[in-house]
Design a protein around this nucleic acid. Structure first.
Lengths: 134, 134
DNA sequence: AGAACATATGAACAGTTGATCATATGAATT
DNA sequence: AATTCATATGATCAACTGTTCATATGTTCT
């Protein structure tokens, strides 16, 4: 399987690479952590859910209002709220017939804001990248 | 479609919700921004890619070493590197027969580190969440 | 030029995902 | 208790995703 790359010439990059790999094995977070991390990102990796989170960034809203605001079906919103709820990103509080959803904590908002910063700081929207470098 | 929720009773939450919705419409980032944001997260939303990013967090590695380190096929790694490259998260520099991949900039590492922080700060790994609140 | 190595890429396939539709649950109002 | 409104949920289906296999591209060495 692990096709060991045979080029073990001294002074070559291979040397440092292998040193790094040894160090990495130490620092490598547990399988579970990495899985949770990617899972967390996966939840944010859908524009509908991102829009829902943004809709809640100013305060709680009930499902029907989220749906109205985003121009979506109540069902679709509800399904996605369930995902966000399981990921502990939002929280629902019943108020009469309605259920007001809110962001779980400020932490979510922080991460979210940083994401937007990361995107916008790329000064624009040129998104290619087909050259290998060199 | 937008089933307008009829309960317009004064003093009810509906009032503030609708006020918020008006304000939101202003703050709402452009469609493109939100799409880019979720797209960015989507790339991080896969454990293989997260593991690759982590493997590069200590310095460049060539494809075969990444594959060896993660116990994956060269092909699978290469495919994912392409995704990461298009998302401008990594960068490849040819060095002889090999191509050393590296994280694009420190910004990536920052975002990445924050993600790990967000996960671990949840003190453990209890992941349910089936109650609506109340 | 030819062989060997490193990486990229296209096709194919299984597994996952998000929206829709129909319907169930649950709360308030009559 | 029956009706109405608000939300949740299960089934279904099309679209997408990640891996594998086979093969192409590109580099080095002889």
């Amino acid at each position: 399987m692990t096709e060991t790359c045979a080029c073990g010439e001294p002074g070559h990059i291979i040397a440092e690479h292998e040193a790094r790999m040894a160090a990495l094995a130490q620092r490598m977070p547990g399988e579970e952590t990495l899985y949770n991390l990617s899972d967390f990102y996966r939840v944010l990796g859908d524009s509908t859910r991102v829009r829902i989170l943004f809709a809640l960034s100013d305060g709680p809203l009930c499902v029907c209002h989220i749906a109205e605001f985003l121009g979506m079906t109540q069902s679709a919103v509800s399904h996605q709220l369930r995902v966000l709820k399981q990921a502990r990103l939002v929280q629902g509080r019943r108020q009469g017939k309605q259920i007001a959803y809110a962001l779980m904590d400020e932490h979510v908002q922080t991460v979210f804001a940083q994401g937007i910063a990361h995107i916008t700081e790329r000064h624009g929207s040129d998104e290619d990248g087909e050259q290998t470098g060199e």
